[in-house]
Design a protein around this nucleic acid. Structure first.
Lengths: 348, 348
DNA sequence: TTGTAAGCGTTATCAA
DNA sequence: TTGATAACGCTTACAA
């Protein structure tokens, strides 16, 4: 038995008014009397009317929905930025369609197609690892769907807002911290260089060594594809190097966790035998023993800014194509904990 | 400068055919000659045509999109089930709108409204902690949008498919394991009882004690609201009980992590002084030191089944209202590791 | 095998 | 302040 959905005709009929009146009242059009508006809303509620967003979007060319594409949402960094985007969107009257690219170029393309088909008003994205060309985003921009990048940004693409942290100086700061703690032979485990952010983090690490007149030793520099298996492999490999490091900077959370626990499993004392600094927003960083010194990124601010900038662009009067795009770089904070600081009290 | 989006009229004009031909060709209607179909698709591609899903959905009353509502996707259990739903949906030609309720009743209601407005073809949901009444789901079902529950199911709601694990016997199995390991005074940290699954886990724990003629000691039974702060509080509280437990069953991942690391911070040796068993799919369970014994749920199967059952119901010929709903209960597995087993080799 | 035209549920444009 | 009616871009009888 198929139940008929209530539409504005049903509401109009019940009140003996026209559908235009109903439509206007539901959209709070000021030309409709307060009295009529109240009556219409009451009746709509009573009949269980639910506006058909498809029909509405078809007419207005606005869906009040934005799309978000992230590599994997089960990483604290993305979970927290997406949370912030959601909250900001809600405040601004937008719904959010979350998509995961799972770091695949093809999936990312498919996501864009879905979002464009759904006629979202804008897209916020952090690039998949595999992604090198940005044609799919150009397609969206050509269709007048604004795109805002965050974290893993597409620097080559003009006409987009980009929001990121200062990865170079974050890695520089973290490395300098290790040097100040007295470590002499500092290794690095990073991500794939095809993503700008990992290139920058590697650069910051190397520059800090150079700034302190320390040699760069490629035999204690590892790269991972960010999967659990590969992070484990890299941790093992670096700790079994012929001349192993006395400190390691890890460019993501999973790597630092693998490094610490693998080191412990081969009886290295942390931070005495080897120190570890990571990039992490995960609550376990503070909880685990030893607790993890980590660069913390401003997730909340990134998400909020991304959404605000996107809506600015959506609302922009598009008669002339001169919206001013910006690239915003935010600072990070280094949370010093036990994994890089012997004097740190494990119990807080 | 507003760029006009390409529609089927543009494609039709470019080929000097009618819009119906274009529409049919794009939908692989067999009545259109292979030759025409090819030409249309080529031209559509060339012009950058992207089907307007709003218009299409408006006509067909099908959006080929389903909605998923989970409490928080940055928990491995939900991340993995959603991943499985996504993959299965993709295979079946569906898109997925992911929503997070953040365990709030109001947010869950808002999610339902958004999904209904977007005219999704069906909804898969795991309930928010706060949710007690299920009126919003009834509304969806009344509008002929099938609902499939998983994990945190709405048992009171008829006419829905429900997929869950056997929480009672999982907790029973985990507790029995601790008893067999020789622990005599086993505590429990669970979640809010308003959610059936935590009620069942508590029940399984208690029954195992009863089955082994062990007393139930309420002073070492804690409940949490699943937030980090509260999990920490509960861990601390149970370990400082006047007669503290020599083993603890934790009903979720965060609790077990907090318990283990808090115990270590007050110099308890695990598993000698106190053993811990959790519920967890998180890769860190295997990685951390000590590694965590945990009940592992069949995330992949749950997600896949949920999607399959949902599509079955969507595709069901709805002339008579007699779709047969089922409640499916899946088994879990206990991964025994170091946190409950002294003889377990820490290095694997 | 293809074309014509009606209709999906809104919003927008006129007129009243 | 309201009503009639034409769009929006697609799918689908019904005709040809």
């Amino acid at each position: 038995m198929i139940k008929k959905k209530i539409n504005i005709y049903d509401v109009a009929k019940a009140l003996d008014v026209s559908i235009s009146t109903v439509s206007r009242a539901l959209n709070n059009n000021p030309k409709i009397s307060a009295d009529t508006t109240r009556k219409v809303k009451q009746m709509a509620e009573k009949l269980g009317f639910q506006k058909n967003a498809l029909a509405s979007g078809l007419m207005t060319n606005k869906t009040k929905t934005i799309g978000v594409i992230v590599p994997q949402i089960n990483r604290e960094f993305f979970a927290q930025t997406v949370r912030s985007i959601e909250d900001t969107a809600f405040e601004m009257g937008y719904s959010v369609m979350i998509c995961q690219s799972h770091d695949s170029y093809l999936k990312e393309q498919a996501n864009i197609n879905t979002l464009m088909s759904s006629r979202v008003d804008g897209i916020i994205v952090s690039l998949a690892l595999e992604t090198t060309d940005l044609k799919h985003f150009e397609k969206a921009i050509d269709a007048d769907i604004p795109v805002v990048f965050f974290d893993r940004v597409g620097l080559e693409l003009p006409n987009t807002t980009k929001i990121m942290v200062d990865n170079f100086s974050s890695a520089h700061k973290a490395t300098s911290h290790l040097i100040q703690q007295g470590y002499k032979h500092i290794g690095y485990i990073g991500g794939p260089l095809m993503r700008q952010i990992f290139e920058e983090r590697l650069g910051g690490y190397k520059q800090a060594l150079i700034d302190h007149n320390m040699p760069i030793d490629d035999s204690i520099i590892e790269k991972t594809d960010l999967t659990q298996q590969d992070c484990y492999r890299a941790a093992k490999s670096i700790l079994h190097a012929s001349n192993p490091p006395d400190a390691i900077l890890c460019a993501n959370h999973l790597t630092s966790v693998n490094t610490i626990f693998y080191a412990m499993s081969i009886n290295r004392i942390i931070p005495n035998d080897v120190a570890v600094v990571g990039f992490s927003e995960n609550p376990i960083a503070e909880l685990m023993i030893p607790s993890l010194t980590a660069v913390r990124q401003p997730c909340y601010e990134m998400g909020k800014l991304a959404m605000q900038k996107l809506v600015e662009e959506i609302d922009f009067d598009q008669e002339m194509n001169n919206f001013i795009h910006s690239t915003i770089v935010l600072d990070t904070k280094l949370d010093v904990r036990a994994s890089s600081n012997g004097s740190f009290a494990a119990n807080n």
